[in-house]
Simulated scan of single mutants.
Amino acid sequence: MILSTDSFEKIIENLHDGLYFVDQDLVITYWNKAAERISGYSSQEIVGTLCTDSALINVDSEGNYIRTCPLAVAMDDGKMHESELYLRHKKGHRIPVNIKVSPLTDDNDCVVGASALIADISNQAANTLKLKELEKLALLDNLTQLGNRNFIDKEIKERLCEFKRKGTPFGILFFDIDNFKRVNDTYGHDVGDKVLKFVADTLSSSSRPFDFYGRWGGEEFIGIIRNIEQPGLEQLGCRLRRIIESSHVLEGDNKIRVTISIGATVVNITDTEKTLIKRADTLLYQSKDSGRNCITVG
């Protein structure tokens, strides 16, 4: 059976994963529906632009900008490459993706462009199940779609019981958006809400299926990180801080950037819900006193 050109086009247009092509000059020539869904950018907005444009600049797991287009690397060495990166969604938050890039050649084996296949690895299915459960229990924060304070209280109590029963460790990350009042005062509360949503989306999309993030109140968030010790908790907090620092929310022509301060602590055998939260909160304010945009572990 030989498929027609139209059939091939329908197949790639309806792939579950994002797919795009560039020519020899790194100009994007194709952007499928899944790429639109994952990135938030339409084909009309992307086709004809360079893959090195700011809209498509990725960051690595440490929050560092990747200035070299992965497709350019594949075109230079003629090899396929695979990596996990954080793609900036049009709304501003970062999405963890797996990207596979391959050179494209003509009949004479000359490189004429490259392709990229993008898979969203942000645990969307697991997060959808979490949301449904939270909605049923009326534990959802309406703005951010994260668990609210009641949910956080419930989850910490359950994790404490598990720790005392089985010895399963867990940690708390207490986040606060730095100088958030300045955002509200400068741009208005509607934009402030967008910033809160973008931070919440970044935390949620970067989580493992068995970790939870909730909005404690105002511009404060709490992460409950299961089965982790202090070094891993600090590493995770640093990565999230860098990812948020390297991202922005677009409001007209303005790129609104924020940073976060973090207090991080791991449960110990004498902890109650109150002592655990208080210790994380104290560490958070040590980060604030140290100049903000940092993490304090204790």
Score class of each variant (00 low, 15 high):
Ile243Glu: 01
Phe174Cys: 00
Glu234Met: 04
Asn14Trp: 04
Ser42Tyr: 01
Val191Ser: 08
Ala114Asp: 01
Asp185Trp: 09
Ile260Trp: 06
Glu234Leu: 03
Pro103Thr: 02
Phe210Thr: 14
Arg165His: 04
Val258His: 04
Lys91Leu: 15
Arg182Pro: 12
Leu283Ala: 00
Ser43Tyr: 02
Arg226Leu: 12
Ile46Tyr: 01
Arg94Gly: 03
Thr68Trp: 03
Leu196Arg: 08
His89Trp: 08
Asn179His: 15
Leu236Pro: 03
Arg257Met: 05
Ser115Gly: 06
Ile2Val: 11
Gly167Val: 11
Asn150Cys: 10
Ser246Asn: 08
Ser83Ile: 14
Ile95Glu: 02
Tyr30His: 07
Ile177Phe: 06
Ile11Leu: 08
Leu15Thr: 01
Asp289Ile: 13
Thr282Tyr: 13
Thr105Pro: 11
Ile256Tyr: 10
Arg88Leu: 07
Pro231Ile: 15
Leu250Ser: 05
Ala34Cys: 00
Asn14Ile: 07
Cys294Val: 01
Gly223Thr: 08
Asn127Arg: 10
Phe212Ala: 14
Ser206Ile: 03
Lys255Arg: 02
Asn123Val: 12
Tyr285His: 14
Ile11Lys: 06
Ile38Gly: 00
Leu140Phe: 03
Thr272Lys: 06
Leu137Val: 05
Lys157Val: 14
Glu13Arg: 06
Ala280Pro: 00
Glu220Lys: 11
Thr202Arg: 13
Met1Ser: 04
Val47Lys: 10
Lys33Leu: 03
Asn32Ile: 05
Leu146Asp: 11
Asn179Asp: 15
Lys181Thr: 09
Cys110Trp: 14
Thr275Leu: 06
Val111Asp: 02
Gly147Lys: 15
Glu245Trp: 10
Glu13Met: 10
Leu173Trp: 01
Asp25Pro: 01
Asp6His: 13
Arg279Pro: 03
Thr29Asp: 07
Ile95Arg: 05
Leu19Trp: 12
Ala55Leu: 12
Gly232His: 04
Cys69Asp: 03
Ser61Ala: 12
Asp76Ser: 14
Gly223Cys: 06
Tyr285Glu: 13
Ile222Phe: 03
Tyr187Met: 05
